[in-house]
Amino acid sequence: MTKSEAGSQKPEARRRITRGFRLPASDFVARNRAVLVPYALIGALLLIAALRTPGFVAPGNLRTQLVLASYLATIAAGETLVILTGGIDLSVAWNLNLSAILLTQLAEGGGGGRIAWAVVAALGSGMLVGLINGIGVAFLRIPSLVMTLGMNAVLEGVTLVYTNGSPQGAAPGFAKNLAVGRIGGVVPWALIYWAILSLTLIFVLRRSVFGRRLYAVGNNPRAAYLSGVPVRGVLVASYALCGLFAGIAGVLLTGYSSQSYLDMGSPFVLPAIAAVVIGGTSILGGSGGYGGTIAGATTVVLLQNALQVIGVRTAGQQILYGLIILLMLFVYGRGRRIRE
């Protein structure tokens, strides 16, 4: 190496570079702007709601809203992974529905062993569906939108055949407890679960080999491939995990409504994607993370609640989600371009 030669002109270069030094705090804001926006949004939303309807910010109501957000955030966790790769999963609707139905029908009238088996089947079917999605996208190179939309239709058909049009059974006690139960009547189990999920997922995305590769693949699959990253494996794993999260969401929602029913997943697809996008994850893949999605899911649920309070119907809410997704894409899309 010609290190001594390179070193001789170093001090000057170093001085020039450090002249661009900025305060750590402003640096933090700049780096995490995408995540801070949705948290600011929550604050604004709460403020407005509190001024109009003081009951909205009562601790009891906020706790209820956060529990509802934990269900949505479970689906959105899977979508975050898939969207980070640059894909999307539309099959979560019927995937979680099938999991929910498997849970209630297989656990019907059985003891602990039977319930455990039903849970394994519910989560396993969710993951299996995700695995097939991943194989279709990674190996057969089917665009994720098409692959998962097709998968959703297939799952709907399978579910209708399997249930003969009317799902049987009721949610096992443990599922109810997880979804709506509280420790000592105060702290909801669902929030404990959500906290564990969040910490794990954030850590996995930041520090695991899988997480690092996920960002590489989402940003530039070609360079990742030429860097020896097993791109297909990463894709399959993220779709499989997305399926697993859909399965977990199926269990939670079954516990919430004490039963499974047809088309219980569809109302969550658009809000879940909205949660991811509002949370600052780029719909093009490669940037963002679960920290934002947490805020995104909370925002969506609070908004839902606020709209109900004001008296906006479902149709109006749907229009609003669509507009929010488009608006967020516009805002973040511009931000990205300017920073380039």
Partner: peptide
């Protein structure tokens, strides 16, 4: 720019991309 590097990711991530398992 298109084959070797993941441009938006930090120097650290790019340098370690091929050998992640060995620092894990």
């Amino acid at each position: 720019k298109t084959q070797a590097l993941i441009l938006p990711l930090p120097v650290r991530d790019n340098v370690n991309l091929a050998t992640l398992p060995s620092v894990a």
